[in-house]
Design a protein around this nucleic acid. Sequence first.
DNA 1: TGCTTGGCTTGACATTTATCAATTGATGCG
DNA 2: CGCATCAATTGATAAATGTCAAGCCAAGCA
Lengths: 232, 232
Amino acid sequence: MPESHYPEVRSLHLFSEMGEDNYRTLMRGSYVQNFPPQIDLIHEGESSDFLHVVLSGSVDLFSQWNRRETSMATVRPISTFILAATIRDAPYLMSARTLEKSRIALIPSQDVRDIFDIDAVFARAIVRELAQCYRGVVKSHKDIKLRTSLERLANYLLRQQTRAGGEATFELPTEKRRLASFLGMTPENLSRAFKGLQPYSVTVDGNRVTIADADDLRTLAKPSPLIDDYSS
Amino acid sequence: MPESHYPEVRSLHLFSEMGEDNYRTLMRGSYVQNFPPQIDLIHEGESSDFLHVVLSGSVDLFSQWNRRETSMATVRPISTFILAATIRDAPYLMSARTLEKSRIALIPSQDVRDIFDIDAVFARAIVRELAQCYRGVVKSHKDIKLRTSLERLANYLLRQQTRAGGEATFELPTEKRRLASFLGMTPENLSRAFKGLQPYSVTVDGNRVTIADADDLRTLAKPSPLIDDYSS
DNA sequence: TGCTTGGCTTGACATTTATCAATTGATGCG
DNA sequence: CGCATCAATTGATAAATGTCAAGCCAAGCA
């Protein structure tokens, strides 16, 4: 990997505190690649040869079973995916494809495991990252088991609004069909769910969503930090 | 903690390889307690002061939101729970209660974090354990997003059969009401789902389940190692 | 401009799942 | 034993969600 790519990977929590020599060793075997949209990066069931780092663009993690498919998460810069598979040297549980033109760094899994063993700071960072990922999935799981589709959408919109800076109007960061899949419903039902939120001051125009009265929406959504706060 | 309790905790993957001195330090601040059934051990939202280890009995991890409750997992000996919260020093995302009379070891979270920093072997074990937990939740999440309730029950029964040694007849390890919650359905629906599996050679008598023709059931269940194999 | 494409929406309908009420059946207790 | 309790089951009904078919509409293109 050219040295010019070092800084942006280095800025990741996962790598920012580790020893310089170990970091260089990691980068030595790595490389950065540009991908067009809609390219399959990995497929569930394959062995995990590389830890992936999204430098720009975005990546959809999804799974399939019995001809059904569901979107599990979207990975945005700058973060990693399939860390758990890398650590355990186990098959991927999810597939990944680019959503848009993306730059991805690929770090050999064996190198990650090797450096983990000799760099305690890196090990600590990995554990924190993994624990964070774990808690993220637990929250998603609670979301889908405890809430109806309308409630999931309401909470999703409130989270997006926060992410977008709290303005009443903001853009959905993803196609509605993928959002529907992520929220565990069909595109048709997502349309109806948006209509179902009209009494709670939500209006939609294309990808532009307006929440006129967030407190009103919150009476329905009942957001909880133990489900909706992805930063803790 | 009395020394007599050391060996059974020590046998956990998490602790089996770490340095003896560090292990003793961990145990020094820990203690073991006996709990009757149906006792709340921790509640979601609380801060994570102790890593818990189930030595005997069993513990239900569950979550609540808006007066609804769902069972997330059952912890059986000998394993830990709320490792992620301990590592990140973050609030619990799940509550825990004993299902039966249980012996639980409590290890101060701060000690776990301290020893993690100075014992690379322990750190490696924690990472592996966490990665395992992470993959477990991902599998549960795929299960509930990709399958109908009938399919989830079918796969659950096949997993239990395997766990029970592969015999055609085996015991459900939990009450049906909790199983229903774990599988993301109501008790009423679980009853109906069992009936719906009769054409696939499944019969139920109380907690005793018989799968007369597992291959037949598999044509419906379509089990996948990427969802149903909790050992990888 | 007209055409095609694909995502989105809508309506009608089917399926799945939940809810409510009542009953059964096993268990424990005085 | 008789009674109370609670999980499990069953039936009737309602609500949520999915499926299918059709139409809309904006984007891209000849």
